[in-house]
Amino acid sequence: MTVSADQALDLYRVMATIRVFETTAGSLFAAGELPGFIHLSSGQEAVAAGVCSVLRRDDALTTTHRGHGHCIAKGGKVFGMLAELYGRAAGYGKGRSGSMHIADSSAGILGANAIVGGGLPMALGAAWSAQVRGEDRVAVAFFGDGAVAEGVFHETLNLAALWRLPLVLVCENNRVAEMTPSSVHLATTRVADFAGPYAIPGATVDGNDVLVVRDAAATAVARARAGEGPTLLECETHRIRGHFEGDPLRYRSAEETAAWAARDPLVLFRARLAELGVPSARVEAVDTEVAAEVRDAAAAAAAAAPAPVSSLLDDVRPGVS
């Protein structure tokens, strides 16, 4: 799949926005500005940007507790997300649910999810409804290697394969489930191997190379949209931060950190942009714009009205329309 300089710069903008968003959120959390807890996706930006670049706005997406990047890449608004992190009424969940619960019906974001594997059946259902309604929407479920040990992962694969649903299952394999390495929590090293028993295509790709991810996702999405069924796409990547902000990362060696720093998806893609002939000034301009966008959104979110106590009962039970 070819990429133009403009398309490449768009991909870079998404990745840079995610990185700045995560870095900003991490700083705000450390400063005591954000209540609760947050889980950052720094280092995994290429997966979010690459996969979502081949999706339509009406395609459905579910993601995880580490889902900021996917929401941004799918069209979620930085302000609405930061306002949610701050607990502001203007947040996506009216400031009542927090970082792990971003949903945007206008962007097909069915929801991030605080239950590991919890979003997989939901994405399956969105794919099923597209099939029943005869629409060419697809659904994408992002999940980590930790979710592969959940029963719903296998149940979802089985049903998606059985019903040939337009579903793309994207595993961000960062080789660690919370604080436990894959060698301790998974019987296989390659998640894509689980495609075999369900007789669907499976692929393992470099999840830090956005163009590689984009190509693999394009194939899977095209297949889904054409009614040919699901794909299990495993993207090997690296979580720069800990499981949660404040995780001291005692389980990670300096060598591992250094090795992956050299393969930082933004560093890799900047080099690629140069190869594609994108002038460095354009890249730097994107960096400046993105930094300003997130900074302004954070300031606006900080200044926004807190979720009022009067909203405690909102949206609990919708009733009959």
Binding site: L110, P121, G125, G151, L159
Partner: peptide
């Protein structure tokens, strides 16, 4: 779990 979750996802997208 998965069929209930599938019903949920479908209910959020038009069924």
């Amino acid at each position: 779990a998965t069929i209930v979750g599938a019903a949920l996802g479908a209910s959020m997208t038009g069924l």
